[in-house]
């Protein structure tokens, strides 16, 4: 896949076209002394000059590299993913034997589904092992197993997520723009509507995106999605007609829907609302989510993730605190944290 201006997708994620132009960003006085002195003093309301922008970007990048996946500890993601996947598999026999209460299995699996997406998300950005490194196997394994409870293959969610980064908030080209809604309640309703099997659903939109991409990876993602869904439905039907429909409903079907609602409303909608800006420093924001940093998986610093996707989510808070003066110098609203 390549960006419209000829950048590779990886390049575009690290340094999107137009980055540093400051387009549409009103200048504000830095609230903290960044040590930067504009080449030409600028009155409030003017844009930053090219020199200041370049210097800010260099400082930003240095922080981005400091907290990048290859410079911070990421092996716990793989351990957690494998542990949770094994636990989830064990829930079925444990529930059938009456050892695990179904309500507990349902609650834990719902957490695994949502958390699994977060862990897989790190693998999507190769934060657990870059290509060509010994850790690459664990990166791919973590991604593959973490999205199975969602009944979505890693290849598909990765393709759609990288497309989201490439076209953030674009109404037609961003796969996640389908989650746009006026408020949280409607975001949850929209999440349900998007799961419908017909033309209004995410499935139809993702097929369109894959067809437009036309890459071997996109074609493979479509085939893998069909095969995984076929395998999952075979499991559902076989278990249900064997007398375990309630167990499958409580350990897979319902947690999947609860997890997807969380992923759409908390991880996608809240951070990009109102989905109307596409510029590098404006297409997402720094928020203070009512669920708190832990229960929202550090989504408060989603801006940092979009600026530097190679920073794992557990390090975005620290990266943000170092980057905050630079972001404020660009006029980014950092009032939430």
């Amino acid at each position: 896949m390549s960006a419209p201006d000829g950048q590779t997708l990886e390049d575009a994620l690290i340094e999107p076209a137009g980055a540093g132009t400051g387009a549409g960003i009103a200048v504000t006085e830095p609230s903290v002394d960044t040590g930067l002195t504009p080449a030409v003093p600028l009155p409030r309301g003017d844009g930053l000059d090219a020199h200041v922008r370049r210097t800010l970007l260099q400082q930003e990048r240095a922080i981005g590299v400091k907290y990048a996946g290859h410079n911070v500890r990421t092996w716990p993601y793989a351990v957690i993913a494998i542990g949770c996947f094994a636990a989830w598999i064990s829930f079925f026999p444990l529930a059938i034997m009456g050892i695990l209460p179904l309500w507990l299995g349902c609650a834990l699996t719902s957490v695994f589904v949502a958390g699994g997406y977060v862990v897989a998300h790190e693998a999507m950005h190769s934060n657990l092992g870059r290509p060509g490194t010994p850790q690459r196997f664990w990166n791919e394994l973590t991604g593959q197993i973490s999205t199975i409870p969602l009944i979505l293959p890693f290849s598909m969610v990765k393709t759609m997520h990288l497309l989201h980064h490439q076209h953030t908030n674009h109404p037609e080209n961003d796969p996640d723009a389908i989650h746009a809604a006026p408020n949280l309640f409607m975001a949850m309703v929209k999440s349900w509507i998007n799961r419908q099997p017909g033309a209004i659903g995410t499935g139809a939109r993702w097929r369109r995106h894959c067809a437009e991409l036309g890459t071997p990876e996109a074609k493979r993602a479509v085939v893998e999605t069909m095969l995984l869904q076929l395998a999952a439905m075979t499991f559902f039907f076989a278990m249900a007609w064997s007398g375990y429909a309630i167990e499958v409903a409580m350990l897979w079907w319902l947690p999947r829907h609860l997890g997807l609602t969380y992923i759409h409303a908390v991880l996608s909608w809240a951070t990009h609302h109102p989905h109307d800006k596409t510029a590098r420093y404006e297409n997402t924001r720094v928020i203070r989510h009512p669920l708190g940093e832990v229960l929202s998986f550090g989504i408060d610093y989603h801006l940092i993730h979009h600026l530097y996707p190679h920073i794992p989510f557990h390090a975005t808070g620290a990266a943000y605190r170092e980057m905050k003066p630079l972001l404020e110098a660009r006029g980014v609203d950092c009032s939430a944290h």
Binding site: M233, F236, A240, W241, A245, A249
Partner: peptide
């Protein structure tokens, strides 16, 4: 036709067992 199959294959036994 997956929704139809889902209705027969999963929803029906789920209703019955519930």
């Amino acid at each position: 036709i997956m929704p139809f199959l889902f209705g027969i294959g999963f929803i029906a036994p789920l209703i019955a067992q519930s």
